[in-house]
Simulated scan of single mutants.
Amino acid sequence: MLLEVRDLHVEFRTRDGVAKAVNGVTYGVDEGETLAVLGESGSGKSVTAQAVMGILDTPPGRITGGEVVFQGRDLLTLKEEERRRIRGAEMAMVFQDALSALNPVLTVGDQLAEMFTVHRGMSRKDARAKAVELMDRVRIPAARERVRQYPHQFSGGMRQRIMIAMAIALEPALIIADEPTTALDVTVQAQVMELLAELQREYRMGLILITHDLGVVADVADRIAVMYAGRIVESAPVHDIYKAPAHPYTRGLLDSIPRLDHKGRELYAIKGLPPNLTRIPPGCPFHPRCPLARDVCTTDDPPLYEVSGTRGSACHFWRECLDG
């Protein structure tokens, strides 16, 4: 296994109390595999990724338990200097807002070239040539001229391509893409996802794709992990999830996708709101919003039941959900 996250816990100390952002998350991704991590905003997807990358803001956030094993090494036991050498070279991240992630006062060429001067010790001239090569690789037209331009001179889709170029620059074994298609139109979304999938196949990278949109991952993911209130509530191969979800929350996410054969109908929405992470309800955290909730759900927190050898569901009544 390329990366294994085992029983990870992350909390934030706030004025209102301790927010338990990640509560025992366990998942893994192998070489050449795509794992999609889904869930509403605030479910813990990005915080888990930041903990894996070692870029969690501390304080107020802190990792209180678990392991992050990457290529046989527990990253949480390494010194910061060792983590810094791994970031970019062996694992990289594509951030959600490319305009905020890129430095506005440096050209995109300088930002790409820095990867090679810092991690590979290249000369500025050679690093600039590699930057042009990368921009060509992610299909930015007129790369030789545009390498001197600044982030604000690129469209949203082109800025995201620059972020992808930075992520693959040193051919890492793992890329984490945190909602890489947010705020892009549908056509550009498809182009960005196609580019990521193509690069992954070429370099045999593991890919963790963080999103709240089930429609985005249908054609690219191998496995899906659904998060709610800081924990995994369902994990399964992608086709199993779409065919028959085994958790009411997953079913709700699927039902909320607009469908052509439902023209004129009111769009489905999961009732209620995600829980306050400083006051997660007892029992199953989804029970206040769940159509299948019964008395046991208000008192007993369900484990991740084994539905089959390749999937699990944190629902006491996963069989009923699976049967529709």
Score class of each variant (00 low, 15 high):
Ala142Asn: 14
Ala177Gly: 08
Phe154Trp: 07
Asp136Ser: 12
Thr117Asp: 08
Pro180Ser: 12
Arg139Glu: 14
Arg128Cys: 00
Glu194Trp: 15
Arg148Trp: 15
Gly121Phe: 01
Glu145Phe: 12
Leu134Asn: 01
Met122Ser: 00
Asp126Thr: 04
Met193Asp: 13
Ala142Ser: 15
Met135Phe: 06
Arg201Val: 07
Gln149Arg: 15
Ala173Met: 13
Arg144Asn: 14
Ile176Cys: 05
Ala173Tyr: 10
Asp110Met: 12
Asp126Pro: 05
Arg159Val: 09
Ser123Ala: 08
Lys130Val: 09
Val108Arg: 00
Ala127Val: 01
Gly157Cys: 11
Ser123Tyr: 00
Ile164Ala: 02
Phe154Gln: 01
Met135Leu: 12
Asp136Thr: 14
Asp126Ile: 05
Gln189Asp: 14
Gly156Leu: 03
Val147Cys: 04
Val192Cys: 09
Met115His: 13
Gln191Ile: 11
Gln200Leu: 08
Arg139Gly: 10
Ile140Asn: 02
Pro180His: 11
Met163Ile: 07
Met122Cys: 04
Ile175Gly: 02
Pro141Val: 06
Ile140His: 00
Arg161Met: 02
Met158Tyr: 06
Val118Trp: 03
Gln189Lys: 15
Asp185Phe: 10
Ala169Met: 08
Ala143Pro: 06
Leu112Met: 06
Thr182Met: 09
Val186Leu: 14
Ala113Ser: 04
Gln160Gly: 08
Met158Glu: 02
Leu195Ile: 12
Gly157Ala: 11
Gln111Asp: 05
Gly156Lys: 06
Ala143Asp: 02
Arg146His: 09
Asp178Val: 09
His152Ile: 12
Ala177Ile: 08
Arg139Ala: 15
Thr117Ala: 06
Gln189Tyr: 11
Glu145Asn: 14
Met193Glu: 09
Thr117Arg: 04
Ala165Val: 05
Leu195Asp: 04
Val138Trp: 08
Pro172Phe: 06
Thr107Trp: 01
Pro172Gly: 05
Val147Asn: 00
Leu170Tyr: 09
Gly157Met: 07
Pro172Gln: 05
Ala142Gln: 15
Ala190Phe: 07
Thr181Trp: 11
Glu133Phe: 03
Thr117Gly: 05
Gly156Pro: 04
Met115Pro: 05
Arg146Thr: 03
Arg201His: 13
Val132Cys: 01
Glu171Gly: 11
